[in-house]
Design a protein around this nucleic acid. Structure first.
Lengths: 226, 226
DNA sequence: GTATGATTCATACGAACGTTTGAATCAAGA
DNA sequence: TCTTGATTCAAACGTTCGTATGAATCATAC
């Protein structure tokens, strides 16, 4: 049997992912971990401390690997910009690798991350965001260099879109067949799909859509109903 | 002063959006609405009923408008597929129009939707999803017709990616400058950006990325560190 | 063996929650 | 004016929550 601390982290990870954070009580966690109720306060100082530890445990190595990958691609590219598919790969490969390594628990973890990401009012949201400070800066720099024709705001928007697709996939994957990361070859398909979609979206022509034209079309169609 | 029922809906909408659903108590809501605590149970049967009413009130007209727009574009296109930008426009214009019409409260509402969407364990998640049953089917059909070279799974994946970008934008918009829907001309930019990114992503070549090549590159770089 | 610091335990506390109740109040038709 | 049904109200209920406490237990070094 493993450490009490580890058992608590594992139980919390599973329950937070399956039932949500607010809906999971310390009693649920300690029961599943076969630990005493007070153990959470003893080891982590409280529920927030436990949650912080839950995502810190996995997020730290994943994000470090992201930065190392980006470093490697950048030094390989020299003065030229890193290709978009490599940038996205550096962002996506580490979490996917964690899915391979950690099995179901890794999958659960990604659902927690997606959950916290979508809930900016959560008490530990600030601590969560701090894990991504360096990531955001570094990846935005790389993207801006690879997409010199876009202004900074548009780069950031499109970066957020690609993050959104990733979070959405990890959050919904277990419930939506086409996004599911099981079995393994299907996971490869999803991984590839995310990069393909992201690369194409990132380098979309920035004058490709005329909103007024679409609105005019809408008015024309609706004005003359069949 | 408006109806008690309406005041409760407005207060709940604001508080759910700002502080999260689980973190908002009925006492918070009834205090802000200047109503009695028991009024929630009297009018809505409970907290879940109130939440259901909150998103039903706005989601119904928005989703109906989506379907009407798609209907219009489809009958205008005749037998040919509806262009991708029109499909995305039909999906995005109604919520953006609601932002224009309802001001800040509309913005808040979209944050609730994004919140519920990211929390599949929520008690009212089933009722929430039912609002999108018809939407999902109809838009998937239209997309599959416009993207005949893609298999059904890939179409659905990419549809989800475009939804993810939308939800992410509505959820984070108020906090991230580049995604913010204020002021109005900036909102137009975000709207356009979502369509541009989505169109490009949807029609990405499905063999544009070679995962093994990227992995090989990673190994090569890492194997020979500078 | 015993002293010591770390950990686990049963138990309790106070607060906040959603819900319920039954009386009070209001609005409107007979 | 009286009646009736809808609505509002203050108050309370039982539950569950996160946290705190102090004794019991364990591991380990002397």
């Amino acid at each position: 049997m493993s450490d009490t601390k580890t058992r608590l982290l594992d139980a919390a990870e599973a329950l937070f992912a399956d039932h949500g954070i607010a809906a999971t009580s310390l009693r649920d966690i300690t029961t599943q971990a076969e630990a005493n109720l007070a153990a959470v306060n003893y080891h982590f100082g409280g529920k927030d401390g436990l949650l912080t530890a839950v995502f810190g445990r996995r997020l730290r190595p994943v994000n470090q690997e992201r930065l190392e990958l980006l470093d490697a691609f950048e030094s390989a590219a020299g003065v030229s910009p890193v290709p978009l598919d490599q940038i996205l790969y550096a962002n996506l490969a580490p979490p996917f690798r964690m899915l391979d390594a950690s099995g179901e628990s890794g999958q659960r973890f990604m659902r927690i991350v997606a959950r916290i990401n979508a809930d900016p009012a959560s008490s530990i949201h600030q601590a969560f965001l701090r894990h991504f400070d360096e990531i955001r800066v570094r990846f935005l720099e790389a993207l801006a260099k690879a997409l010199p024709e876009l202004d900074a705001d548009e780069v950031e928007r499109r970066f957020h879109y690609s993050l959104a697709a990733m979070f959405h996939t990890f959050c919904w994957g277990p419930q939506i067949a086409c996004l599911c990361a099981q079995p393994h070859d299907h996971r490869e398909r999803v991984f590839t799909s995310l990069i393909e979609y992201g690369v194409a979206g990132l380098r979309a022509p920035s004058d490709g859509v005329d909103l007024d034209e679409l609105r005019g079309l809408e008015r024309a169609i609706k004005g003359v109903p069949a």
